[in-house]
């Protein structure tokens, strides 16, 4: 039996993430919700979830030294999955809360939809909320196994990763007024802007793929 650690830093919907992982684990993988560094570093796979504001998320992570643990997991080669604010926290910087430095696994900087979509009143609501298409760039990657190209996933976010900030690491794109990067990936790190745990069958399939993934393309 392998283990997957869902990092608990006091923010967000980690219970939904853990429940979805348990649902697809079918008893073959142990799901641990934890903030303990040793437990996280000993797990076979790690998920960094998150909802809420980035400043609070980063503050909680720094307080618990989770940011350093995440860097270590990324460097270890073990599969690491970021979800929503967890994905944004893996970038270098976010424009939210007047600008917050993040963990920096990726160089990109997160921007605000409200600025980018300004001047189109009524057409594009912010937050970007609901089911949108996810266009896979490397569709043969094991994380996309059994998931149809352009499947819909559930999004809720006001901040986003511009394509120009994801050069060479963008694994999927989504359109909301313009194309943005909805999944970043490098080596053993895969991170989604959408919520797989709220994306019905496609989302559960992504979690099942994660539990089978060895961290290589």
């Amino acid at each position: 039996m392998t283990s997957v650690a869902v990092i608990d830093y006091g923010m967000g919907n980690l219970h939904s993430v853990a429940k979805a992982l348990e649902h697809v684990a079918e008893g073959r993988h142990q799901v641990l919700v934890t903030s303990d560094a040793a437990t996280i570093l000993a797990a076979d796979r790690v998920v960094l979830p998150g909802v809420g504001a980035i400043r609070d998320c980063m503050a909680e992570m720094q307080q618990l030294k989770i940011d350093q643990v995440v860097r270590e997991v990324a460097a270890s080669g073990r599969p690491l999955l970021g979800v929503c604010v967890g994905m944004q926290a893996m970038m270098a910087h976010s424009a939210e809360n007047n600008g917050v430095d993040c963990i920096g696994l990726f160089d990109g900087r997160i921007g605000f939809f409200g600025d980018a979509l300004a001047g189109e009143p009524g057409e594009y609501k912010v937050p970007h909320m609901g089911w949108n298409r996810v266009h896979q760039i490397a569709a043969s990657h094991p994380m996309w196994h059994g998931i149809e190209q352009d499947s819909r996933f559930y999004f809720v976010h006001s901040y986003y990763l511009p394509l120009a900030q994801a050069e060479g690491v963008c694994a999927a794109t989504t359109e909301y007024g313009f194309e943005f990067c909805s999944v970043v990936m490098r080596g053993n790190v895969f991170a989604t802007q959408f919520h797989p745990e709220k994306s019905a069958d496609a989302g559960l399939r992504l979690y099942a793929n994660f539990l089978n993934w060895d961290g290589r393309a």
Binding site: E123, Y124, H128, G130, W131, N132, R133, R152, T174, E175, Y176, G177
Partner: peptide, 8 residues
């Protein structure tokens, strides 16, 4: 626009 209208 690719975002789906939702039925709840």
């Amino acid at each position: 626009m690719a975002l789906a209208k939702r039925i709840i």
